[in-house]
Amino acid sequence: MNLISLTPLDLGLAALLILALAALSLWLSLGLERTLLVSAARMTLQLWLVGLVLKVLFNNATIGWIALGAGFMILVAGREVMARQQRRFAGVWGYGLGTLALAVPSLTIILLALLVLVRPAPWYEPQYAIPMFGMLLGNSMTGVAVGLDRLTQTAWQQRSVIEARLLLGQTWDQAISDLRHEAARAGMIPIINSMAAAGVVSLPGMMTGQILAGSPPTEAVKYQILIMFLIAANTGFAALGGVWLGSRRLFDERERLRLDRLKNR
C-alpha cells in the first residue's frame, strides 16, 4: 500500500477547523483565539523547517550531523522545560538543571536502542535515530517540567513545614523527601496513563504513522511497544533525576532552605 500524498489544499481545509475553533473561542470570550492561532502557525512553521532539516540529514547521514541535530534538540527541550515552570531556578540553573536531567538518560537510552535493540546499519541511521530521539525528548520534557514545577511550587507553599523539620534536626533530604516523592510521582503519571490507555483509548502516534505508511499492523505494534517502554523509562529517569537535582538546589551547603534561588515567571 502506497502512502497517500497530501496537497496544500488538504492542509488548508484542515486548518479551517482551527479557524473555526478560534472563532468559537472569540464568540465565547475565552481569550484563547490568539494563543491558538499563534500556536498553530508556530507548529506549521516548525514542522516545515524540521522537514527541510531532516531532508538534509537523510541526504548527509554522517555521525557529526546527527550529533549536531541531537544536541540542538536537547537545548530546545531544556528551554521548554524552563518555560513551563511557574517558579524556576534563577540564573543558569533555571536552564541547565532541566537540560541536564533530560540529556543524560535520553542519550543513554537512545544509544541502547540503536546499538542493542533496533541495530540499524549504520547504527546512527537518521531514519531511526532522529524520530526515536525526538519521541524520547518530547515525552520526557513534559515529565521533567511537571515534576520540577510541582517541587518548586510545593516547596514555596510549605516552606514553614520544611524549615520546622530542619529545626527539629532533620537533614535537607529528610525535610523535603515527601515533597520530592510527590513531585516525581506527578512527573511520571502522564506517561503511565499513556501506557495504560495505549491500544484501548488511543492509537499511539508511531504506530499510526507506520500503519498509514503501509507497514503491517503487527510490525507497527512491535515498534510501538518498544518505543513506549523506552519513553516510559526515559521519562521516569529524567523526572526522578530532575526532581532530585532541583530539591538539592533548594538547599545550600549548610542545609538551609534557599527559596531566594527561585524566581517567578
Rank of each mutant, 00 (worst) to 15 (best):
L3G: 05
T7K: 11
T7D: 11
L9K: 13
L9M: 09
D10C: 12
L11P: 05
A14E: 04
A15S: 15
L16D: 01
A20Y: 08
A23N: 07
A23L: 14
L24P: 00
L24D: 00
S25F: 08
L26C: 02
L26H: 11
L26K: 13
S29Y: 01
L30R: 08
L32A: 09
L32C: 02
E33A: 15
R34Y: 01
T35P: 01
L37Q: 09
L37F: 03
S39H: 04
A40H: 05
A40L: 06
A40C: 10
M43V: 14
M43I: 13
M43W: 09
M43P: 03
M43Y: 08
L47W: 01
V50E: 03
V53E: 06
V53K: 08
V56G: 02
L57K: 07
F58Y: 10
A61N: 10
L68Y: 04
G69T: 06
M73S: 15
M73D: 00
I74W: 01
V81T: 04
R84I: 01
R84C: 04
Q86A: 11
R87Y: 13
R88P: 01
R88H: 15
F89P: 04
G91P: 11
G96P: 07
G98D: 09
T99M: 13
A103F: 00
A103N: 02
L107R: 05
L107Y: 00
T108N: 00
L114S: 03
L115Y: 10
V118N: 10
V118Q: 08
V118F: 00
Y124I: 13
P126N: 13
Q127E: 14
M132P: 04
G134I: 03
M135E: 12
L136E: 10
G138D: 10
N139G: 12
G147W: 02
L148F: 03
Q153V: 15
A155R: 09
A155F: 00
Q158Y: 09
Q158K: 15
S160V: 07
V161Q: 13
I162A: 09
E163W: 09
E163L: 13
R165M: 06
L166K: 14
T171D: 10
T171A: 13
D173M: 13
D173N: 14
A175V: 06
A175L: 05
S177F: 10
R180S: 13
R185F: 03
N193I: 01
S194V: 08
S194R: 12
M195Q: 08
A197Y: 02
A198R: 00
G199S: 06
V200K: 08
S202L: 08
L203Y: 06
P204A: 10
M206H: 01
M207E: 10
M207P: 09
G209H: 03
G209V: 01
A213Q: 11
A213H: 11
S215T: 14
S215W: 05
S215C: 07
P216H: 12
P217M: 02
P217K: 04
P217A: 12
E219I: 07
V221N: 02
I227K: 11
A238T: 03
L240N: 14
G241A: 04
G246Y: 05
R249I: 00
R256I: 00
R256C: 05
R256T: 05
D260R: 13
L262P: 07
N264Y: 08
R265P: 00
